[in-house]
């Protein structure tokens, strides 16, 4: 049997639905005349499992899993990593510093742009955005330890 994309996707949704049901254990289902807080989540979880199974059963219509292209995964992973680092730093370093570092990292590390133009671009656009928001539009942005 060829492993197909919908086998994986369907299995994921079945597991996800089961996980939701497991996490819903302490939520009261109630009765039809007085539904509890677990009523609709459990219905939605059961439907998710059901549709997941149907997806698996009809997986023959989908692409073989091996043919899915993951060429962009490295790029996506690096963007996610750098963005996650920026989120960690955002409240500590503030808008200005964090976003200069974010854009610089994306341009220099991922896009392999030359350092000086990348620095000029990242500083330029972030400072312009900062001035636009803070001084012209009077909208406060997250400040860092140095007040900006």
């Amino acid at each position: 049997m060829i492993l197909r994309a919908d086998h994986i996707a369907g299995a994921f949704f079945v597991v996800f639905g089961l996980l939701v049901l497991a996490l819903s254990g302490d939520l009261p289902t109630g009765s039809l005349s007085m539904p509890g807080s677990g009523f609709l989540p459990k219905i939605a979880a059961v439907l998710t499992i059901f549709f997941g199974i149907v997806l698996i059963l009809r997986a023959g219509e989908s692409k073989p899993f091996a043919t899915l292209s993951w060429n962009d995964a490295k790029h996506a992973g690096m963007v996610v990593g750098i963005t996650a680092a920026a989120i960690v730093l955002f409240e500590r370093l503030g808008f200005l510093t964090t976003n200069i570092l974010l854009i610089l990292a994306l341009l220099f590390i991922i896009e392999r742009r030359r350092l000086l133009p990348a620095i000029a671009y990242s500083v330029g656009v972030v400072v312009i955005t900062y001035v636009l928001f803070v001084y012209i539009l009077k909208t406060p942005l997250q400040a860092g330890p140095l007040g900006f």
Binding site: V79, T83, A86, I87, F90, F95, N99, L102, I103, L106, L107, E111, R113, Y121, S122, V125, V126, T129, F133, T139, L141, Q142
Partner: peptide, 18 residues
């Protein structure tokens, strides 16, 4: 696009955080 998407990510962060 290499210059555009970092800007979009920055605006996504500002918009969601704000």
């Amino acid at each position: 696009y290499a210059y555009l998407y970092p800007l979009i990510i920055m605006f996504c962060i500002i918009g969601v955080y704000a």
